[in-house]
Design a protein around this nucleic acid. Structure first.
Lengths: 155, 155
DNA sequence: CTAAAAGTTGGAGTCGGCTCCAAGTCAAGA
DNA sequence: TCTTGACTTGGAGCCGACTCCAACTTTTAG
């Protein structure tokens, strides 16, 4: 049988771009499960852990607070999410958020593009808070032809 | 001639979803220009200001630190960005970041979708840190058919 | 005239997310 | 044997981004 490759915390940090301190911190606040230890107490990481840490780092880049990441990890660690209906609901909810965030980002890109190839323009953001209605689920497809909402400059 | 509509800080807060305190804070740190005042010292906001605040709020949702937003505002306020080549470079740089962030987010969506309709899977994040090479500029188009990078589960 | 509502200021406090110690353990090399 | 280096722990400190407060000035309603 094959041996599963194991990594030190330093190697893990290098591979994920997350610092050792931060990895330990995530473990401390139980965002990551307590890592396996060697006899000398040193942490050992597996491919799976590295993927998990990458996922965290990825979510972090999107501005998600650490507390909101927990549902992702629950799903990431456990076997079947279908066993936890509440978790599934949370995940769906997060999906919506992210999709709408993609739309926001796409608008920022549009904003920049506009600014870069003409002088004056200001894009709008889709705003899930405004008028408390459900976030409209904009599909990634739909998003790509997002048109400019209004213009401010002279005609 | 028409009168330009003006808003109180409260109305502005309501319309943008940014609290009054935060708006004042942004002004304090000069992220927003000092707002026009009425005779009694109360701040007055115009459509333009509201758009600017929405832009900030939009950028914030993406996890961008306030300091990084300044270039956007410079462009937003000034006339022609082409006058400031360094600013243009910064904007392009930010555009790249955002595009790659969109890709990250899309992967998170994929991750969730996978998790939701089968049991176990773990996606990867595109990682600009790893091996210091330039962020590959993934176009929004290209992104929409992002395929799953690898799979861990059953065939 | 008084009271409540909506604003102003400066400054203090809070909270999330690290980041940086100091003190200690262990393993390998000169 | 001594030192170097990679790790461990608990805890303190820091910074960004608010958030709250006290003291004050209007303005509007009753």
């Amino acid at each position: 049988m094959k041996i599963a490759p194991a990594y030190t915390i330093k190697q893990t940090a290098d591979q994920t771009g997350v610092t050792e301190d931060t990895i330990r911190y995530y473990e401390k606040i139980a965002l990551l499960p307590r890592a396996e230890r060697k006899d000398n107490g040193h942490r050992v990481y597996r491919e799976e852990d590295i993927r998990t840490i990458r996922l965290l780092s990825c979510l972090k880049k999107t501005g998600m607070p650490l507390e909101e990441m927990r549902p992702f990890l629950a799903v990431s660690a456990d076997a079947d999410p279908a066993d936890y209906p509440e978790l599934v609901a949370q995940l769906r909810h997060h999906r919506e958020n992210i999709v709408s965030q993609i739309a926001s980002l796409q608008q920022v890109v549009d904003f920049i593009d506009m600014k870069l190839d003409e002088g004056r323009y200001r894009g709008e953001c889709p705003d899930e808070e405004r008028s408390g209605q459900k976030t409209r689920p904009i599909s990634p497809m739909e998003m790509s032809h997002f048109s400019v909402a209004g213009r401010t400059g002279k005609p």
